[in-house]
């Protein structure tokens, strides 16, 4: 098994309880510092794949390795130190502050001494730094459940960044975000991938913008990984139009020349 791979997915299958059809088998891999866009129609299995990688669900067969270790064999803390997950939305009935939510990213790094201490954690420098780069410093004492969609999203990203995991999973990170916040969010992710060699797998819906940010696209359709490749390769195949059952128009971004798919 090659250990220079960050993520290795080998013939993974999963049985959805609601349908007769199953997910997979899916085989794929990712290297450090790779930003992967996971696209496909609704119900194709994007969230399923992310949940399997995060070991929230266990595969029926096949295996998923992160840095050469089987994800289902990790202890909870070991897993969270390697894999962080930013959910699409998250509601809570409790008034945790932004700072308290972000600090939870440290949970997997707590020693027994930290746990027994009254304060629970020391405030590491990187926590303040992450609050600053995600633009949350002025909001840190606000209750999480009073935030706008964009602020809440950044808070969840910040918590994931505090985990300092080499593999970051994002589920529809720009859903419900306006273009300004979406751009800031994606730029932040891109910047992090380039500077920390983090591998990101990002489920994504918008075919117009996905090609502008990612290195690789994985296309899921009906539980199968049908195409992988650079945005250039994937977005120009005719198959993509069949998968989405839409006659999408391909254009190039006027400034970067990257491929974009638009409504017909």
């Amino acid at each position: 098994m090659t250990s220079d791979l960050m993520l290795e997915i080998q013939a993974v299958t999963y049985q959805w309880s609601s349908t007769a059809k199953g997910f997979g088998p899916v085989t794929a891999s990712a290297t450090p510092g790779q930003l992967i866009g996971l696209i496909g129609p609704n119900g194709a299995g994007k969230s399923t794949l992310l949940k399997l990688i995060a070991a929230f669900w266990a595969p029926e067969s096949g295996s998923i390795h992160v840095k050469g270790h089987d994800v289902t064999a990790f202890s909870a803390a070991e897993r969270a130190r390697r894999i962080a997950f930013v959910p699409q939305t998250l509601d809570t009935q409790f008034d945790l502050t932004v700072h308290e939510v972000v600090e939870l990213g440290r949970l997997s790094q707590l020693s027994w001494r930290d746990r027994l201490q009254f304060k629970g954690t020391t405030n590491p420098a990187h926590l303040d730094e992450i609050l600053a780069i995600t633009g949350l410093s002025p909001l840190q004492h606000r209750p999480y459940n009073t935030l706008s969609g964009g602020e809440a999203k950044r808070t969840l990203l910040a918590a994931a960044l505090v985990q300092q995991s080499p593999l970051l999973l994002l589920d529809e990170p720009t859903a419900h975000l306006d273009p300004g916040h979406a751009l800031k969010f994606l730029t932040l992710v891109r910047h992090m991938v380039d500077h920390t060699q983090t591998t990101v797998v990002m489920a994504y819906h918008d075919l117009a913008t996905v090609g502008l940010f990612v290195d690789t696209l994985w296309v899921l359709d009906q539980g199968q990984l049908v195409i992988t490749g650079t945005p250039e390769e994937v977005l120009s195949t005719p198959l993509i139009r069949t998968i989405y059952d839409t006659d999408l128009i391909q254009i190039r971004h006027p400034r970067t020349q990257r491929p974009m798919l638009l409504f017909p």
Binding site: S75, A77, P87, L90, T92, L96, L104, G105, S108
Partner: peptide
């Protein structure tokens, strides 16, 4: 109970998010 105080904070965000944050839910 005491050593799990932070885990309880994570559980307030739901079982799935607690899992991702490293709680053996």
């Amino acid at each position: 109970i005491w050593p799990f105080a932070s885990d309880m904070n994570a559980l307030l965000l739901g079982e799935e998010q607690a899992h991702h944050l490293g709680v053996a839910v």
